[in-house]
Structures are given as structure tokens and as C-alpha cells.
Amino acid sequence: MPDLGVLGWAALAVAALVIGMSKTALPGAGTVAVALFAAVLPAKQSTGTILLLLILADVFAVVAYRRHADFRALLRLAPAVIVGMLAGIAFLAVSDDHLVRIVIAGILLLVIAITLLRRHMRRVVEGEGSHRVAAGVYGTLGGFTTMVANAAGPVMSMYFLAARFSVKEFLGTAAWFFAIVNVAKVPFLVGLGMITPTGLLIDAVLAPLVIVSALAGRWVASRIDQTVFERLVIALTVAGAIYLLVA
């Protein structure tokens, strides 16, 4: 078991709680977990370690919203997402830990900018042509960000909102999207040496926290001020990204 210190384990515990709730109640909050993992663990190892916890939380999200997914939207996204993931694999194969750490920080800042832009977005995806263009742009960016940093949440949320999904369609489509993509990433990250025995031990310790927070997520979501929470998530993610840049 790695000696991460009290603060290190506390940060990972908070990240595990965030992962569960981000999947079942508060989409987009997962960027905080990405920042915390990358701050405590080596950058590449953090990507592999957090992935297995995300998959665990995906199970609860799919079970909760399994009947509400728009599979046509998922098929439309698939080609671009594959291209983005392949680009991410190529980047990880030739990059060292320091560069990956910087890129994770940059991606976090990018997704925060996208999140803020989403709030002010007025245009929506309309017509088959626009759907294809939007699927190409967001799918490619989402594939790359999820492969390199597990940080595609805000990117894909913007696409799903622009597609004018209902709340249940949004949650169901996002649940299936991330479940499929995250499972597909496992063999590549194993091959790149990013899923390690040490990471598996850390996951075993943190898994109960993910399960508890995933089960409690919807209850908590109905009792927390969404605006305050979103602002807190943005502030913490920016702080985490800046820390990764200067550390």
C-alpha cells in the first residue's frame, strides 16, 4: 500500500465521494476528482487508477437510467469519439509524466471554460447536418479528453444539452456513453502501464466510498443548492488545475 500521507488519502477519499455523486446526481463534478487524483498520484497512474472507480460508479448510473438513453445519438458520436480516443492513446504513448500532468491541467481549464460557455449558450443543435457537425466536434474532443484525463464530462454535457434532451434522456444517454467508453479504455491503459497493482490497491480502499456516494447521490441532490454547488465545483477545479501547472 502506498504511503500517501494523511492529506493524500483524505484528498483521494473526497475524490471518491465526488465520483459517486457525479454519476448519479451531479454531472460535471467529476473534474474535481480528476484534479485531486492528479495532485496526489503520478499523472499517468492517476488516470488509470481513477478509471476503475469511474466504471464502478457507471454501473449505478446505468442501472438508474438504463431505459432513457438515446442510442441513435450514441451511434452518431461513435466515429468521432474513436478518433479522439486514438489520438489520446498516441499522446499517452509518447508523453512523460510531467507533460501529461500539464495537459491534464490544461484540459481541466478547457472543460471549465466549456462549462461556463454552456451557461450562456443560446444556439441548439438543429437538423441532421448540424447534428453531424456537433457530434464530430464534441465527440473528438470528448474522446481525447476522456482518454488522457477522464475529463470529458463537461464536453459531452454541452453536446447533450445542445441536442435538447429531456432530463432523463440526458442522464440515461450520458450514463451509457461513459460506461461504454470507460470500459473500452481499460485494455489500452493496461497496455500503457497506467493501471498498476498499486492503483488497484488504492481502488480497493476507495471503492466503498464510491458506492455509498453513488447510492446517496440523488438524495443529496434534492437537498443542495445547485447554483452554489456548481460554483464550488468550478472554483475547486480551477484551483486544482493551477496547482498541477505550478507544482
Rank of each mutant, 00 (worst) to 15 (best):
V228R: 12
V103I: 06
L141T: 07
M1F: 03
F188C: 07
L117G: 15
I234D: 10
A73S: 12
Q45I: 11
A29V: 05
A204F: 07
A135M: 05
E126S: 14
V190L: 15
H120Q: 12
A64C: 02
F144W: 07
A247W: 12
D96V: 00
G129R: 15
T31S: 15
T47K: 05
A93P: 01
G129K: 13
H131W: 10
T24P: 06
V183S: 08
A90F: 00
L108Y: 07
A163M: 15
R218S: 13
P208W: 13
T115P: 01
M121N: 03
L171T: 04
V103Y: 01
S46T: 02
E126F: 08
T145E: 11
F165H: 08
L201A: 15
H120N: 12
A134Q: 11
L189D: 05
F178R: 09
D96Y: 00
A207T: 02
I114S: 06
N182D: 15
F144K: 09
T115A: 07
F91G: 01
F60L: 04
S213Y: 01
V40A: 14
A15W: 09
V124E: 14
F160Q: 04
D96F: 00
A113Y: 02
F229I: 03
P208K: 12
R76Y: 00
A239G: 09
A25W: 03
V181A: 13
P197L: 04
G28T: 10
T173Q: 08
A163P: 00
E230D: 14
A175M: 14
R164D: 04
I202S: 10
I50D: 02
A135Y: 03
T198A: 14
I102D: 03
V137I: 13
V220G: 09
A10E: 08
R101L: 04
L36P: 10
M21H: 04
A152N: 10
T227F: 05
I211M: 15
H68V: 01
A214H: 05
A163Y: 00
R119S: 13
L52V: 06
V238N: 09
S166E: 11
V190Q: 14
D3C: 02
P187S: 12
A39Y: 13
D3P: 00
W9L: 15
I224A: 12
K23V: 04
A162H: 00
R118L: 14
V63K: 10
F177H: 13
D97S: 04
H98G: 06
A241T: 09
T140Y: 00
A105W: 01
A239T: 15
T237W: 05
A163Q: 11
I19Q: 01
L74W: 09
F188T: 08
T198G: 14
M158H: 05
I112D: 11
V111C: 07
P208F: 13
R67H: 06
G106K: 02
L245C: 05
R122P: 00
D97L: 02
Q226G: 08
G217P: 05
G142L: 05
A149V: 03
L4R: 11
T146M: 13
G136R: 06
L86K: 01
N150S: 13
V40G: 10
A207G: 08
M156R: 05
R119Y: 07
K168S: 12
A184C: 13
A241Y: 03
V210E: 09
L245D: 10
G84V: 02
G191C: 12
A43Y: 03
G106H: 01
R118Q: 15
